[in-house]
């Protein structure tokens, strides 16, 4: 008896549906969390990160 015989007989297709539900619930949870009004201000701060990365002190010439 090969592994494929065992797997074929095991009736595993139910687990695909379980996974579908788990993934879907996780995804919905992420959406809700992301769009929660309480996070708006924090999100706006995060959005500014790329614009806020040039804080240099006066130059220090270094040879190439």
């Amino acid at each position: 008896m090969r592994l494929s015989d065992i797997m074929s007989a095991a009736g595993l297709s139910f687990y695909a549906q379980v996974a579908l539900v788990l993934f879907f619930v996780t995804f919905i949870a992420i959406i809700i969390r992301t769009f929660a009004p309480s996070r708006s201000r924090e999100m706006d701060e995060h959005a500014r990160l790329p614009l806020d990365d040039d804080h240099a002190v006066p130059r220090q010439p270094v040879n190439r």
């Binding site: 804080h55 240099a56 002190v57 006066p58 220090q60 270094v62």
Partner: peptide
């Protein structure tokens, strides 16, 4: 002739207090 290599200053993470929760 030589590139400037600007020196940047930033606080290390562990020495900065964790941000207070934003939520009400």
């Amino acid at each position: 002739a030589a590139y400037d290599v600007p020196v940047v200053e930033a606080a290390p993470l562990d020495r900065r207090p964790a941000p207070a929760p934003v939520a009400a």
